[in-house]
């Protein structure tokens, strides 16, 4: 009799402790583009207050590092400080057009919002984003489509020069291998606020012109990614 009571008490305690985990979710991210690569992704379940950016407002330095050079370290530090459940670089490097990666997250109570970010190559400060989506609570499969954003921190000069550090002009690289060199640049003005990306312009001159981006192979339209969330 006594041992039965102990077992019941124990299982109740286990149930209570498991409620610390608000949900088990699986997140499948697919790059829908033909020639654009995503740098290492950051996938995070976090509190509403830990939102990564607000469209129309200036980018944080952490977001700028991600958008200009693919460096998610400062965003991850901030999320860790906020007690988020995060996955860094689930694809183990670049995610090419048409490729997918899947992340499993155990979210602790209060981390009810999901964000996903990664820089898009080749762009100056373009990034794919899911911005603080309220994670569905009912078990099931949910599908979303993500748009390309512009951090507004760097001019979209479309010069591919390896420049990936914050406040360094230029694009770090073009992994698809079809871009050009020797461009003079399209513009020297950064927009100053986060917004939906206006797209790559590119040109047809592999050794000059205004842009190093290849207009035929490195343009894109939204949506640039799909996300399937499975709530278990």
């Amino acid at each position: 009799m006594k041992s039965t009571f102990t077992k019941i008490a124990l299982s109740t305690a286990l149930l209570m402790s498991s409620s610390l985990f608000a949900s088990e979710i699986e997140v499948k991210i697919t790059n829908l583009t033909k020639g654009i690569y995503f740098t290492p992704l950051l996938v995070s379940a976090h509190k509403q207050s830990a939102k990564l950016f607000t469209a129309g407002q200036a980018s944080s330095s952490a977001l700028q590092k991600m958008a200009e050079g693919g460096d998610v370290s400062e965003l991850l530090t901030n999320l860790n400080t906020a007690g988020a459940n995060s996955s860094e670089n689930p694809a183990g490097g670049l995610l090419a057009g048409g490729a997918s990666t899947t992340v499993s997250l155990s979210t602790t109570t209060g981390n009810d919002y999901l964000s996903i970010v990664a820089m898009m190559l080749p762009t100056n400060d373009g990034f794919v984003a899911l911005n603080s989506l309220k994670i569905p609570t009912a078990a099931g499969t949910y599908k979303y489509e993500l748009n390309a954003h512009d951090a507004g921190t760097e001019a979209n000069d479309e010069i591919i020069n390896g420049g990936g550090a914050p406040n360094t002009p230029g694009i770090p690289g073009a992994p698809d291998g079809t871009s050009g060199t020797g461009a003079t640049g399209l513009t020297s003005t950064a927009e100053g606020f986060v917004h939906i990306h206006r797209g790559n312009i590119g040109d047809f001159n592999a050794t000059g012109g205004k842009s190093d981006i290849n207009a035929q192979t490195e343009r894109f339209l939204n949506p640039v990614a799909s996300v399937i969330i499975t709530v278990k």
Binding site: L32, T33, K34, G98, G199, R219, F220, L221, N222, P223
Partner: peptide
């Protein structure tokens, strides 16, 4: 490979 179309130039 099927992808989202990058648009007509």
């Amino acid at each position: 490979m099927v992808s989202v179309h990058s648009g007509i130039i």
